[in-house]
Simulated scan of single mutants.
Amino acid sequence: MRALTIDPSRPGTLGVTDVPDPEPAEDELLVDGLAVGICGTDREIAAGEYGTPPPGRDRLVLGHESLGRVREAPPGSGFDTGDLVVGVVRRPDPVPCGACAHGEFDMCRNGRYTEHGIKEVDGFASERWTIEADRAVRLDPVLSEAGVLLEPTSVVAKAWDQVDKVGGRAWFEPRTVLVTGAGPIGLLAALLGVQRGLDVHVLDRATGGPKPDLVRDLGATYHSEDVRTVSDAVQPGVVIEATGASQVVLDVLSATKAYGVTVLTGVTSAGRHLAFDVGAVNREIVLENDVIIGSVNANLGHYRAAADALARADLAWLGRLVSRRVPLERAPEAFEPHDGDVKVVVDLAR
């Protein structure tokens, strides 16, 4: 069968290649691949920045934002042929840390987890794939093609879960959220904020293209000014940072009102040095009881919360997040930036 693979140690080796057909174990689903989303992580692996193939192999099958349909399911698995499913990305260490042992593998303490399409386990960018039944999440059939958004939605479902847990240390009733970045993660974070009944503001530097309309049609407010101007105007109780841009990250550290919670979800590249008044920011965080958290990955509970959120969303709006679809045979084209891109998807069934 065909799959999108790469030798992560050699930039420029991304390509569609032949790989062996998967053979499911007794506890695994056999799944027909429908689509995979392409994100910054995939592009960084393609650039040779990181990524590890399975032991004993040179090439890794990419794709961690999956969508597939069950072809075969073992008896008693809870799945049936034809179910729409997504595979959970992270797998805990076989000898897990305490967090992994309690199902919180997104909070792994020892770093010996593996991840589909990223670290030591093949991803889902292939015509067929297998997944343990307890590592698969069933989607509402109504989601259809929009189901490929589940994995990024799980990331922001976790971010909101962390907001609730941290805010719950004292009385906490935020009314306004500022999301920095109107890429897929930012837009999905805004979606969940709107579903919570919050006054949602999204900041992005784009002044044209689809992003402003996507935000407004969600019922949120779009901004293109700097962080300080927007935060001073809206006084957010929660900030979700989804750009990973160094200056934006620094700016949001002091962007909330008192007792604010800021969640950093964007991964910043090292090597850029900026002037930073640590004392002033530290003083504000301490005196206002603010909290800054980093959040990445998701566990099964977050995937299920994300599936519920997507099922409640406007399907037409979700469909507009997928701005470009590329067939598997031309999958490398999905890594080339185009004006107006929001979420680019590789169609595995074409």
Rank of each mutant, 00 (worst) to 15 (best):
Leu253Lys: 00
Ala73Glu: 05
Leu250Thr: 06
Asp341Trp: 12
Arg128Ala: 11
Ala298Thr: 05
Thr256Val: 02
Leu150Met: 06
Phe79Thr: 10
Gly37Thr: 04
Pro22Asn: 12
Glu44Gln: 15
Asn297Asp: 13
Asp7Ile: 08
Pro141Glu: 07
Leu84Gln: 04
Trp171Val: 15
Arg175Phe: 04
Val86Trp: 00
Asp42Ala: 07
Ala298His: 04
Val215His: 03
Arg135Asn: 13
Glu132Asp: 11
His116Ala: 15
Asp80Val: 01
Val345Arg: 02
Glu115Trp: 12
Ala146Pro: 07
Arg228Phe: 00
Glu26Leu: 01
Leu60Gln: 03
Pro55Ile: 00
Met107Val: 11
Lys343Asp: 08
Thr256Cys: 07
Arg325Glu: 09
Pro210His: 04
Val202Thr: 07
Pro327Thr: 13
Val142Trp: 06
Thr130Glu: 04
Gly82Val: 09
Arg350Thr: 14
Cys108Asp: 12
His273Phe: 13
Lys119Thr: 10
Glu145Lys: 10
Val227Gly: 00
Val16Asn: 11
Pro337Ala: 06
Pro332Arg: 08
Val121Met: 02
Gly279Glu: 05
Leu139Gly: 03
Lys343His: 14
Pro96Ile: 09
Arg128Gln: 15
Thr176Glu: 08
Glu225Pro: 00
Asp347Leu: 03
Val326Gly: 12
Gly209Trp: 00
His201Cys: 05
Asp226Tyr: 09
Leu214Asn: 05
Pro92Ile: 10
Gly51Pro: 10
Thr262Ile: 05
Gly186Pro: 07
Ser66Asn: 02
Pro141Gln: 06
Leu62Gly: 10
Gly123His: 11
Lys158Gly: 02
Val230His: 01
Tyr113Gly: 00
Asp18Ile: 08
Thr13Glu: 03
Val177Thr: 13
Val346Cys: 07
Glu145Met: 05
Ala159Gly: 11
His116Val: 10
Lys165Glu: 15
Arg283Phe: 10
Leu67Ser: 12
Leu218Trp: 09
Ala255His: 07
Asp232Thr: 15
Thr41Gln: 09
Gly271Val: 03
Arg57Ala: 15
Gly340Tyr: 06
Arg91Ser: 13
Asn282Gly: 05
Ala255Thr: 04
Cys39Ser: 12
Val227Ile: 08
Asp277Gln: 12
Asn282His: 14
Thr114His: 01
Glu104Val: 06
Ser126Asn: 09
Pro337Gln: 08
Val36Ser: 00
Ala73Cys: 09
Gly63Arg: 10
Phe276Lys: 03
Arg91Glu: 14
Ala101Gln: 02
Gly167Trp: 01
Arg43Ile: 11
Leu188Pro: 10
Leu188Gln: 13
Val19Thr: 06
Asp314Glu: 15
Asn289Tyr: 09
Val234Leu: 06
Thr13His: 04
Leu310His: 02
Asp161Ala: 12
Val194Asp: 10
Phe79Gly: 08
Ala220Asp: 02
Ala309Met: 08
Leu218Glu: 12
Gly63Asp: 08
Ala275Gly: 11
Arg228Asp: 06
Gly123Asn: 14
Glu336Ile: 13
Asp7Leu: 05
Glu23His: 07
Arg90Gln: 14
Asp58Lys: 10
Asp27Cys: 01
Ala35Met: 01
Asp83His: 01
Pro337Glu: 07
Arg71Trp: 07
Val31Glu: 01
Pro212Glu: 13
Gly78Val: 07
Gly167Glu: 04
Glu28Trp: 01
Glu127Lys: 13
Val31Arg: 02
Arg112Asn: 14
Thr17Phe: 02
Asp217His: 02
Leu198Cys: 09
Glu132Arg: 15
Thr114Val: 11
Pro94Asp: 14
Lys343Gln: 14
Asp80Leu: 03
Arg272Phe: 04
